[in-house]
Amino acid sequence: MVKVLNPGLYSSIQDFGRVGFQQYGVPIAGVMDQYSAALANHILGNHETAAVIEMTMTGATLQFYNDTYICVTGADMSPKLNDVLLQLNKAIKIQTGDVLSFGKIKTGFRTYVSVLGGFKSEMVMNSQSMFGGITSELKLVINDEFKYDVSNSFIERKNASIKVNNNMFLKHDIEAFQGPEYHLLSQKQQDILLNSPFSISNNNNRMAYQLQEPLENSLEPIITSGVLPGTVQLTPSGKLIILMRDCQTTGGYPRVLQLKESAINILAQKYTGQQIRFKLV
C-alpha cells in the first residue's frame, strides 16, 4: 500500500482513460502525456495502460508500506527516495517504509510514477482515471491510500536498454492535421496560424490550453459537433483553445486543427509563457 503524505499541487491516478463512453457525454480523461506514462510502465514490465500517479508542476510525497519497484518518468521534479536523489527512467527498488518525495522542477511540467503491477484504485467505466463527477475523488488528497500488488516477480533487466525521447521537452513544433473547419479560414488566417508563434496563457489545465495571441476571427459558430483531445477551437474573440484529456465531448466553436497524439504529449509538458508553433502534417 502507498499513503499520500502530501498530494502536491495537482496529483491524480490516471490510466489511458474511458474510451467508448463519449456518446454519453463522458470525457476520455487519462494521462496527459501518454508517452511518459507508457514508458514508466514498460520499464517495470507492466501493461502500458496500467494506472500511474500523474503529478503537475509540484510533486507529491508518498510512503510505501510494502516492498516493490517503482519508476519515475516525464518532467524532472528532482525525485528523492528517503532524501537521496533518484535517476529518472529506471526501475527503483522500494522497501517497506520508504518515502518518495520531489523538489525543484528542472524540465517539463508533468511527472509520472508507476509501481510494479500498477496502482489499484476505484474503477469506473473500465478506467481508474480520476475525474470530477465520475470518480469519488478529483485528485489525490492527504492520507489517501492505494494498494498495489505485492510481488517478487520483477526481474531487473540490467543489460536491457530503453531509448528515451528527451527531445519532447525541447520541441516547440506541434504537429496537427487540418480540422473540419480549417478550410473556412482565409489564406491570411491560415498563414498566421501556421507561421506564427503562440504563447501558452495561464489558462491551462487538464481540460484545455488557451493560447495568448488572438487570431482575427469572423467565422460563425458551428452546430454543436464532436470534439476530441487535441481539437483546436477558434473562439469568436479570436482565442485559440486546444482541448486536452479532460475536455468535453462536443463543442460549438470552429475546429481549425486536430493535434497528432504525439503532439498532445509534447504540449502536456509545456507551461505558462512557453511558445509553440503549429506544423501541418
Score class of each variant (00 low, 15 high):
4 V>Y: 11
5 L>C: 09
6 N>P: 01
7 P>T: 04
11 S>K: 10
13 I>M: 12
14 Q>E: 10
17 G>S: 07
17 G>N: 05
18 R>P: 02
19 V>I: 15
23 Q>K: 15
24 Y>L: 15
24 Y>R: 14
26 V>Q: 04
31 V>F: 03
31 V>Y: 02
32 M>G: 08
34 Q>M: 10
40 A>C: 08
42 H>F: 13
46 N>F: 07
46 N>P: 04
52 V>M: 05
54 E>L: 03
56 T>G: 00
57 M>T: 06
57 M>S: 06
58 T>K: 10
60 A>F: 04
60 A>K: 02
65 Y>L: 13
67 D>P: 01
71 C>D: 05
74 G>Y: 00
76 D>L: 01
85 L>G: 00
85 L>Y: 12
94 I>P: 00
97 G>A: 05
105 I>W: 00
110 R>Q: 04
112 Y>Q: 04
114 S>H: 04
126 N>L: 07
130 M>Q: 14
133 G>R: 13
133 G>Q: 11
134 I>P: 05
135 T>A: 06
142 I>M: 13
168 M>H: 09
171 K>Q: 14
172 H>S: 14
173 D>M: 13
175 E>A: 10
176 A>P: 03
182 Y>L: 03
183 H>K: 13
186 S>T: 15
188 K>E: 11
188 K>M: 03
191 D>A: 14
194 L>Q: 05
200 I>L: 15
202 N>Q: 14
207 M>T: 11
210 Q>F: 11
217 N>I: 06
219 L>P: 01
219 L>R: 06
224 T>Q: 14
239 K>Y: 09
241 I>L: 14
261 E>G: 14
267 L>F: 09
267 L>G: 03
270 K>E: 05
276 I>A: 04
277 R>Y: 05
277 R>L: 00
277 R>K: 15
